[in-house]
């Protein structure tokens, strides 16, 4: 008995030792700054970092009463509403259509997965060129006269489209691999029992990839909440602040203008939102597991 617990403890020790570097990194670069931001969000701090006094909740009330922040929060919600469903439907559709390996699916796979290999900023710049002005490439192709990036609605549309494009490759790969790793025996059995393709897809395949699907939805949600770089490059929050998202607001106000109050309060808020959505997600996940 004694030796067994000793052995077990030794094993545990080993595990912790292996974890140590990541824990140390996480502590210095994540937990410590986070705690510091949390504490600082209740203080008034000068741009050069001097503590000027205790602020209570003032930094928070100020943030919520700031028209720029409220506008950014609203735009982020708008983006989430358009982006998450569209992204999910399109990637699921592409993965569904190419889930079975046939002749030629390799070409489709290559095309669908290719967005993954080019960097985000490169795509954002390409989009910016394609949609620039009334004589844009897109307008020439479709002989339209839309001011894509100068009108509010089309600009949001282009941003959502870019977002889908950026996430498409990874989500597609995850979903097709999920489809392909499902147990073929179950499908074969269902076929023998006389189930048609539709029935097999909706009652067997889709439920089997549900976990991966919810993972991609969660990833999409995360990307939507955090979206900043595409905004910075493509629209700069414009036209007329209509595509300013929370993280873009953070970028211009906290990062560019050095507003410490916004820096700290917004960091804390965004972390809270993440912990919350992570919690909901993992609860749902474990709930699903219990049911299956």
């Amino acid at each position: 008995m004694l030796t067994l617990t000793y052995m077990k403890r030794k094993e545990n020790m080993k595990a912790y030792l292996f974890l140590l570097p990541s824990l140390a990194l996480a502590a210095t670069f994540l937990f410590y700054p986070l705690m510091k931001a949390f504490a600082s969000s209740f203080l008034t701090i000068s741009q050069s970092g001097k503590i000027l006094g205790f602020a209570g909740f003032k930094n928070y009330t100020k943030l919520f009463s700031d028209s720029g922040f409220r506008n950014a929060a609203l735009n982020t919600i708008k983006f989430i509403i358009f982006f998450v469903p569209l992204n999910t439907v399109l990637t699921l559709l592409a993965a569904t259509l190419t889930r079975k390996k046939r002749k030629g699916t390799a070409i489709a796979e290559f095309i669908f997965a290719s967005p993954i290999v080019i960097s985000l900023s490169a795509y954002a710049l390409i989009f910016k060129e394609m949609f620039r002005g009334r004589i844009s490439i897109i307008n020439r192709i479709f002989s339209s006269e839309i001011n894509w990036l100068s009108d509010k609605v089309p600009a949001m549309f282009v941003l959502v489209f870019l977002g889908v494009f950026l996430d498409f490759g990874l989500d597609y790969l995850l979903l097709t691999s999920a489809f392909r790793s499902t147990d073929k025996n179950i499908i074969d059995a269902a076929k023998i029992d006389g189930a048609d393709d539709r029935k097999i897809y909706f009652s067997i395949e889709l439920p089997l990839i549900k976990r991966m699907l919810s993972a991609t939805i969660f990833l999409a949600l995360k990307d939507a909440i955090m979206i900043s770089s595409p905004v910075i490059i493509l629209t700069e929050g414009g036209p007329f602040r209509s595509t300013e998202t929370i993280m873009f607001y953070y970028y211009i106000e906290a990062f560019k203008s050095g507003n410490r109050a916004v820096q700290n309060t917004l960091s804390v808020l965004m972390t809270l939102i993440f912990i919350l959505s992570m919690a909901i997600y993992s609860r749902r996940r474990s709930g699903n597991e219990k049911r299956t």
């Binding site: 002005g133 004589i135 001011n147 100068s150 414009g238 036209p239």
Partner: peptide
């Protein structure tokens, strides 16, 4: 008057 905030010089150069 066109309320355009990006690509104004492109519009100008193209005579628009």
């Amino acid at each position: 008057v066109g309320n355009i905030t990006s690509g104004v010089s492109t519009e100008f150069a193209s005579g628009r």
